[in-house]
Amino acid sequence: MERKGAVIGLDGAGIEEYKRLHAAAWPGVLAKISDCNIRNYSIFLKEPENLLFSYFEYHGTDYAADMARMADDPETQRWWAICGPLQRPLETRRDGEWWAEMEEVFHHE
């Protein structure tokens, strides 16, 4: 199992919409997340900076393949088309990243 953390900005005007969308996340999107071996997925909001922090645990064996399967899913693509314009990727993210991946520097069970 791998723990993953990532951060992205959120358009201040879109905060309520983002919360509303995630309070009623689409069942097909949630099923695809599970199908791609992601568990214990959470997104946190830090205001007034309007930063989203995501955390999840990956329980598969090929992260890149599972993320590609998720990206190929039509319902997930529709979800991202709605949520994506509300997000503000960090300028310091690596090439190919939307959410900037973070290094885990501490963990305690």
Rank of each mutant, 00 (worst) to 15 (best):
N37H: 15
I38P: 00
R39W: 06
R39V: 05
N40H: 07
N40L: 06
Y41H: 06
I43F: 02
F44K: 10
L45R: 05
K46E: 13
K46I: 13
E47H: 10
P48M: 12
E49S: 13
N50Y: 15
L52R: 01
L52G: 00
F53D: 03
S54T: 15
F56V: 04
F56H: 09
F56Y: 13
F56K: 01
E57G: 05
E57M: 10
E57K: 10
E57I: 14
Y58H: 06
G60P: 02
G60S: 02
D62M: 08
D62K: 06
Y63G: 00
A64R: 07
A64M: 06
A65N: 09
A65S: 10
A65R: 14
M67P: 01
A68D: 13
R69H: 11
R69P: 08
M70V: 06
M70R: 13
A71T: 04
A71S: 12
D72T: 07
P74G: 10
Q77D: 02
Q77K: 15
W79V: 04
W79S: 01
W80T: 00
A81C: 04
A81N: 05
I82N: 05
C83W: 00
G84E: 10
P85W: 03
P85Q: 08
L86T: 07
L86C: 11
R88N: 12
R88Q: 15
P89C: 11
P89R: 07
P89A: 07
L90R: 10
E91V: 08
T92Y: 10
T92V: 14
R93W: 04
R93N: 05
